[in-house]
């Protein structure tokens, strides 16, 4: 079963990469941007077949390794 998770920086954490991307997009003519925040996306294929259990396993991975909860949030976005 494939489980997808996204990791994003918490709101009050500075994201210099997002800022630079914002500026570049702005320079390319995309003038309607309020803010760009960059994050990470993981697609994890687990052996577990039960969707709820699979989601829990990936959530545990997020807490223990994939995200640093001091600065990042995680969200399981898809299970299939």
């Amino acid at each position: 079963m494939k489980v997808s998770a996204i990791i994003t920086l918490k709101k009050d954490v500075l994201d210099p990469q997002g800022k630079v991307i914002h500026q570049t997009l702005d320079g390319m003519g995309f003038k309607d941007i309020n803010e760009v925040r960059q994050g990470k996306y993981f697609e994890i294929d687990v052996k577990e077949k039960d969707p709820i259990k699979a989601k829990n396993v990936v959530e545990d991975m997020c807490k223990k390794l994939l995200a640093n909860l001091v600065i990042e949030n995680y969200k399981i976005i898809e299970t299939q």
Partner: peptide
Amino acid sequence: VETGLVPGVLLRNKYL
């Protein structure tokens, strides 16, 4: 910091 032995984190340098 990743082990949690000292508090906080280290982010990308401000000016990249």
